[in-house]
Design a protein around this nucleic acid. Sequence first.
RNA 1: CGGGGCGUGGCUCAGCCUGGUAGAGCGCCUGGUUCGGGACCAGGAGGCCGCAGGUUCGAAUCCUGCCGCCCCGACCA
Length: 568
Amino acid sequence: MLWSTLFIPTLRELSAEAEVVSHQLLLRAGYIRQLAAGVYSHLFLSQRTLLKITGIVREEMDRIGGQEMLLPALNPAEVWKESGRWDLMGDNMFRLKDRFQRDLCLGMTHEEVMTSIARGELRSYKQLPQIWYQIQTKFRDELRPKSGLLRVRQFIMKDSYSFDLAPEGLDAAFDKHFQAYCRIFDRCGLSYVAVEADSGAMGGSQSTEFMVASDAGEDFVVTCSKCGYSANLEKAIAQASPLAQPDPPEDTSPEKFHTPGQKTIADLAAFTKLPETSQMKSLVMVADNKPVLALLRGDHQLSETKFAASMKAREVRTALAHEIVQWFGAEPGSLGPVGMKNIAIVADTALEGRVNMIAGANQDDYHLRGVTPGRDFKADFYDLRQVATGDRCANCGEVLAIQKTIEVGHIFKLGYKYSDSMGLKVLNAAGEEVKVIMGSYGIGLERILSAAIEQHHDKDGMSLPASIAPFTVVVTPVYIADNDQRHAAEEIYRNCKDLGLDALLDDRDERAGVKFKDAELIGIPYRITIGKKLAQGQVELVTRRGKISRDVNVGDAAREVAKAAAQV
RNA sequence: CGGGGCGUGGCUCAGCCUGGUAGAGCGCCUGGUUCGGGACCAGGAGGCCGCAGGUUCGAAUCCUGCCGCCCCGACCA
């Protein structure tokens, strides 16, 4: 293609509004423009890279036997009501009414529609297994869209769904997807980590997230460099750090003491001269509208995800100040488990076996010493604590790393959640009706693009991998008015096209600096520069990543690019 | 929804506090010079100052309400 005819609106300056690198570069390089909060138009370059990403995704999905479909984004309420998610999805779902006042929504994901197709058509175990997928636009009314394409209200997702007769089949489908996802992210040039994750609103038993390390991300993952353990911070487990001071062994009973103005764990540690590990932290939570007292070691933080999972609760929140006073008769800062009736008490496993700790007395400005779980109050023990910096791996004892990441893919074993709620059954070999077991698998296409930019850029712009760059090579005559240069450039460009390279000819009547800057900004992996050395039959081949330049013969230029691009 | 910030030619911003005929740089158009790292000279086009009310002789500027966008938080696949 000829650059002079293309719409590539690169910007020299950029508003301070874009803070994340990928967002800044996508705007500056003329890939995207914003239409509304969390809603973006993909211009020519963005669409080109998305098509390349789509192509990779499609190839790898087809390779594992996936069958591509295209489902409607506009969904009737009925299927969502059947699964129970019409209510569960809350304000995150875009809802609308048609002219007859019927409820509709825009699809956030497609378990319901896929399941409704499956139950209408699948009759026999002989039709299983199936893997169905689509590449389609999803709508989610995010509370707060942000970070360019990373958190948006409309985005393109590859979502697939597996249907199997038995759990072993689901395991196989899950594993196929795992492999396919690894190949997809590898081919897109991402370095990523696959981690154990919480299943959340999707339901189901097991799930794995594919995470790309980046400060622009919103998720934290915990990894062990020694044994390879990795998990989302929400779910990660670790050894608790040792106690700063052993518990006093005496067999005492709780004793109240005056603690004027001592509200935080740090206050109490200083006041009692006992370390934070000797304090018992009391958090008042509300799980599905029921109050729950959650207990943790003083230096530990609650993982709300683990808490919700332990309580099997849909909705979890911290209690409001007036609720706490009503239930406990004291302000936060003096709360504790001793003597509490009519409220569920859960404790982190790090409190199991502990004796004679400090806890609130449920009376303002008083605490208790000598508090022992089990003896002084009853609690159910769960792993509730969020892994913290410096914690050691539960498997091997190595210090764990915590890093910020972008979620680019997520695969779930759904189990029977939707087959149950929507009645998806087939006949088995014995002629009995059996439920179909399902899996669901998603990839955010714009997130692949954003993550690739986050991982591959420098001060001059993007340096995308050739597999997803909008063009593989740009042919740049330094001075287009020079006939020799122009003709050489045209010939090299034709050679590139003949070799099947995705080539762009920068035939604009611009100065060399402008052309170089633009090409680097939009991240084209290779550039062939036709300049002064043409007289000696030489042109320059410049690799975007690292800006490595070497001279090649005019006649070899296209082949050299093809060779280089094939190696990556 | 709570907190903070912003809305002025296509883009990035100044002007607002202290009311008095709307500015700069970049980009764009015309002509000329230049041509290996975002050129230069000359001329030119382009703005309901987010919207609606109010105060005032007079509002981009002051007041009120609304809308939109960004950031932090809560939330989230």
